[in-house]
């Protein structure tokens, strides 16, 4: 496991350019929303940017790397060795969780110094923990996509499309620009529930019944995505 982890982290590091891009989007949004912090609230801005970061890690980072390595036969070569399938996957997931931590801390730091968003220490810690949990909604979604689609190019374009939809939702959906019905849909979408739970974690005093429902919904989404993703997933590339 340690050797596999080292290899997976090395791979991540050698691909740092494309992974840097994955992180960049949420930071760009964070900086460009600087002027809106007063209007939207710091917690809303932070939670939106982290959620967008989580979607990009799960959808762009995770699913594409899995689809690519499956297509190249990297998994097959590992699987003929004495390692279980779970070990191979676990190593991949740990790398993604490290990415989530890095992204969240970056958002906190940039939010602090550029946007002057200050929250309580408890809020930072709870937010970081919740980001790791919330990340599983999108890792699960990424898993479901690579389970459903074999071709890495199709996976790439599909995740881009879903990601684009999420960004649009994130930027405009919750403001009610798209109407009330859609607004409600957005709030209970995999995007909305994670953002809501994150926001409440960053400001623990604001946690209420609605947040608990959102948390349950996020857990439900994760379970559905992971079950489907594991069920559909095939290791071979044919």
């Amino acid at each position: 496991m340690a050797a596999l982890l080292r290899a997976d982290f090395t791979t991540l590091w050698r691909n740092r350019r494309s992974f840097g891009l994955v992180l960049l989007v949420s930071l760009v949004i964070l900086v460009s929303w600087k002027g809106l912090v007063d209007k939207l609230g710091g917690v809303f801005v932070l939670s939106s940017c982290i959620t967008i970061g989580l979607t990009s890690i799960g959808l762009m980072g995770y699913s594409n790397s899995i689809a690519r390595d499956r297509d190249r036969g990297v998994f097959q070569r590992l699987r003929v060795g004495p390692v279980s399938a779970w070990t191979i996957m676990m190593s991949r997931l740990i790398v993604q969780i490290a990415m989530i931590v890095l992204m969240t801390v970056l958002v906190f730091v940039v939010g602090y110094f550029v946007d002057h968003i200050y929250i309580s220490p408890v809020g930072y810690i709870a937010g970081l923990l919740m980001a790791m949990l919330g990340g599983f909604v999108y890792l699960g979604m990424g898993q479901a996509i690579v389970g459903l689609i074999k071709n890495p190019d199709t996976v790439n374009s599909t995740t881009r499309l879903v990601y684009f939809i999420f960004i649009m939702i994130g930027m405009f959906g919750e403001f009610g620009v798209l109407g009330k019905k859609i607004g409600l849909l957005v709030i209970w979408s995999p995007y909305g529930v994670v953002r809501k739970v994150l926001a409440a974690s960053l400001d623990p005093a604001s946690w209420n019944m609605d947040t608990t429902w959102a948390l349950l919904a996020a857990a439900g989404y994760t379970i559905v995505f992971v079950v489907l993703g594991v069920k559909w997933f095939k290791w071979e590339n044919k």
Binding site: A3, L4, A7, T11, R14, G73, R77
Partner: peptide, 23 residues
């Protein structure tokens, strides 16, 4: 395997070391 398939990001010695540890 019929089709060689190692992580393209790793160097040859890293690949050898990885698989040595796995075994």
């Amino acid at each position: 395997l019929q089709a060689t398939s190692f992580q393209p990001e790793l160097t040859i010695s890293e690949i050898i070391r990885l698989f040595a540890s796995i075994y």
